[in-house]
Amino acid sequence: MTESEKYLNALIEQNNKITLEIYKKFYPKIERFVLQNNGKQQDAQDVFHDALLYLILKHKEKPLSINSFEAYLFTACKNIWRNFLTKKRVMKDDIIIPMDRETNLILSILEQQRMDFYQEKFQELSNNCKEILGNYFNGMSYQEIVEEFSYKSINTVRQRVFKCKTKLIKLIKLDCRYNKLRQ
């Protein structure tokens, strides 16, 4: 049994001793992170608690095969805390809806699931598509892509990006998970 499995099972089985071990081992780092990012100790405590639930939820949906429990926990904490800080996340005609802790947690999970799903589909693309689209999503301009990969013109890149994106969208829509995750 890996370290991650040991911790996740302990949390699910409500094993107090191992849960305490998780706190001792990982909490100080998370606390430092939250305190450095406009949070208070209470926030750190809330974020840590919610991040543990986040991992369990994800694990129950699909058993996590993760090497580093710490890295995964840290990412979860970062996502939750970042989402909480940028509160204007749920928009309704540009009106900010106040978010409670639970909604924040669920949206963080939803965001992660969407990302995992899109990325999985992204991996099914051809290598060429992955490369060009990857750069496009990373914020490279068409001009920069032309130069980087010596394409003929901006127009060629534009068409390429368009084709790859259409392909990706098709793959996403064909997957039955799309309906459950769509916005």
């Binding site: 949206l107 939803l110 916005q183």
Partner: peptide, 10 residues
């Protein structure tokens, strides 16, 4: 996020 996210199945 959109308001519709709160109605989403997941």
């Amino acid at each position: 996020f959109k308001e519709s996210d709160l109605e989403n199945a997941t």
